[in-house]
Design a protein around this nucleic acid. Sequence first.
DNA 1: GTAAAGTTAGACGCCATTGTCTAAACCGTC
DNA 2: GACGGTTTAGACAATGGCGTCTAACTTTAC
Lengths: 224, 224
Amino acid sequence: MAGHTQRGQCAKRMSILDAAADVFCRKGFAAASIDEIAAVACVSRQTIYNHYREKETLFVAVVENVMNRANATLFSVLSTFPDSADDLEDGLTAFAVRLNKNCICNHDGKFLRKLVQTEGERYPHLFESWRQQGPGKLTTALSALLARLAHSQALAIDDFDVAARQFVALANADLQMMTLFGGTPTNEELEKAARNAVRTFLKAYGNPKAEKGAGEPQLAAMSG
Amino acid sequence: MAGHTQRGQCAKRMSILDAAADVFCRKGFAAASIDEIAAVACVSRQTIYNHYREKETLFVAVVENVMNRANATLFSVLSTFPDSADDLEDGLTAFAVRLNKNCICNHDGKFLRKLVQTEGERYPHLFESWRQQGPGKLTTALSALLARLAHSQALAIDDFDVAARQFVALANADLQMMTLFGGTPTNEELEKAARNAVRTFLKAYGNPKAEKGAGEPQLAAMSG
DNA sequence: GTAAAGTTAGACGCCATTGTCTAAACCGTC
DNA sequence: GACGGTTTAGACAATGGCGTCTAACTTTAC
């Protein structure tokens, strides 16, 4: 067991995790068979039982794995939120694109939402941690970031939590149905959805007193 | 088979449909057992096989039943959309409450979204018809209703389809997570979510030229 | 090369479920 | 009360998946 023996095991483990995520996501927990997971992973069934004692253990490991990946991605996407009022529309649009593309409409996001609906009742604590560190984190973090923008008077927001949830909801508005039905949006669709969302968000929360880099003035431009 | 013998069968059929919807919704198709459905329906297993030849037949009947009910409810809710610009905020808020309460956050709505995610790939045509007559109908109908309001200059909307999707998205923004995790919002939560949504929607799309029945003026009241 | 660990294919018992079948019980109509 | 249709409980074979076991094979370390 000494030294680098772990490497082969590690590759197998990840191969199994990926295959199991695929099959669990397509079939659900009950309809997913160990044999099919083994076939997809190009691994013997016994190997699966060697690494994960039973089906439930494997399932929990899969969910935790995807959750960690999704949380890391969310964190990195949140770090790209625009921090200045310059080009606010473009900055927010690019952020909304990344949020949809990498966190909400991507494979992991769909996987977790699907699983939380089908198996959430059987594993409350498992998905509760995702709720707190996934969507919950998104709302609180976005709320703080919006507060920063509002403090620099780029936005006029009364309730930051509400505004954060509304930003996410608007960003999803045009893609929700597509992702619910299993589709994946193209880059053009992502761009268009984000632009629609940010335009409406800024119409509602944009501070007309703040000078803007570009774009048509909302009601009256008094700066001239 | 003459006369009213059907009544008893009809009651059994509905009892089975309800029970099957309950079990399918909780367990999913694969993990739902006919025995459990029979127990919930207070009916013998053989009776289920008498009415619905096999498990798949029963499942399809359940989905169609729930779909029809949901579509009828959606239609009746859509007919309560406010048609005048008076009390627009209150009218839209009440409409948003009804939309969430009776169509989106209710039992049937959660059931259909859950099922479309888990079994959508196995029954594409079944859920495609729901997509068209459910969410699709909602968007197109709401788009037309918003266009009517815009035509009477109560709203200033450039793209009605986008505005319709955004209205629904905003109405859901505060409740999305709760319903995803199985919770059911209280009346207060419904009211609050709808009010937040409509306030933002009107900040974005409200026509400042139109006189308003009540509420604080947005920027400046020139009517004095 | 050898030994130890890990992997593989296959067989096996076990259990849950599906769908069928049968005999008995139930219910409404005549 | 007799009869046709419906429901019921239980038995039944067939299927398929889970988890275990074994014997052979491959890989890695020394």
